[in-house]
Design a binder for these strands. Sequence first.
DNA 1: CGAACCATTGACCACCTTCAATGCGAGTGG
DNA 2: CCACTCGCATTGAAGGTGGTCAATGGTTCG
Lengths: 237, 237
Amino acid sequence: MLSQALSSSPILLPLAHTKRCEAPAPRTLEEHFSRAPVRSFAAKEHVFTEGDPRSNLYRVEAGAVCLYKVMGDGRRQVLGFAYPGDLIGLGACNDHQCNAQVTKPTQLRSVAWNTVQRLARQEPALALKLYEAMCEELAAAHDLLLTTGQRSAAERVAIFLLAMVRRSRRTGQDATVIDLPMTRADIGDFLGLTIETVSRTFTKLRHLQIIDLAQSARVHVLDIGALEGLAQGEVDL
Amino acid sequence: MLSQALSSSPILLPLAHTKRCEAPAPRTLEEHFSRAPVRSFAAKEHVFTEGDPRSNLYRVEAGAVCLYKVMGDGRRQVLGFAYPGDLIGLGACNDHQCNAQVTKPTQLRSVAWNTVQRLARQEPALALKLYEAMCEELAAAHDLLLTTGQRSAAERVAIFLLAMVRRSRRTGQDATVIDLPMTRADIGDFLGLTIETVSRTFTKLRHLQIIDLAQSARVHVLDIGALEGLAQGEVDL
DNA sequence: CGAACCATTGACCACCTTCAATGCGAGTGG
DNA sequence: CCACTCGCATTGAAGGTGGTCAATGGTTCG
């Protein structure tokens, strides 16, 4: 494959589609989600933190969530971002292994974790779906590993922007304009770079007419070919 | 938690233990493995490569396997190492997502992938086990991400050595002497460093009497406390 | 013994980080 | 409405860590 790189980890489970059911008892995970109330979170609020008991599985309805780990001395590694349709809070052990912080006003729905477990035991198909979801997350983690371990700052930023463009395309947006829902610090901690390096790289891309930055959070992609060239290490800045 | 760091990815599935069954048809995955013939691989042989159809699930019986990905220009990221008891070749999609290369003479057993799938569909418990195995692999990938993304060369090497010490302890060896089954290049590509940096870091540790290197592949850990201090970034080299 | 491979060591330098100052925008209160 | 503040982003200068290139050394295997 090599590589949907940074396919933006968490997972959109292709479960049975909503059936607009009016009343019968919820049977599929999808049905549970559909009838769960929407919970709103303000920017910077945490959905859960590392070590919390895994009480719920969440689905992002709107907004964006940043998943990260921290080291004792404060250094932080962002593991990925979750967008509408993505599930967060998946995992096998009893406690959450990372922090989930909302990066802008966000709506979530949740299903109790023991409900998920019960469904998974009843429905082998759901267990397999969860397994597949983890596999995708693992693939995303491996891609990120390749990126942070081996690539230059310019490559990392280009790959990140291209991943955002692809996301934008999939959700049917104008793919040339991206609204970044996270800060430079989030991007830096995701890519294993400092805020300053991220900012400087953006500036270089702007000077090269590869992107434009009307506002710091709004990226216009002017030359996606150049971005792809950078992402593959074919050129330097 | 924070962090079994570099818990050396692949997974030792705590499946039903071998029951020394003499004849009846194999029912559990464990039974399938037990009666599979042992296949031997020479150092540097590949078990599978990226893009190969996922034909088998493998269990390491003896030796060591290096799992890695490569980029177009040859840069390589080692995702982890598999040791006796670990499974390799797990994943949801039809093709392998990484390369698996034996680093020293190694024995494996394998079970056909469609057998694994059939068992997983019959036994919800096995599907959940596979799910848990993936979760552990994901946790390992996240730990490695934290390491390659945020830590200094000395921290990375210290963490790597400590992970080897823990492994050694678990398998009941003398934990102060570690025989590294991989080259400096493997270690470097694992930690996101060059061969030279790995080598220089080993040398520094030797000069500080933290380790001793009788041979380049044999590490005597002289001061594990110092190693732990380094791993947590409490001291610099 | 020679060859091949791997590890070590050294010198140099590039890239990224660090530290510091300035700029910009949004939200708040006077 | 404006001034103020706070958080975030940008920009600059200096320095260090780790990378690159190159030569040497050591081990294993023929």
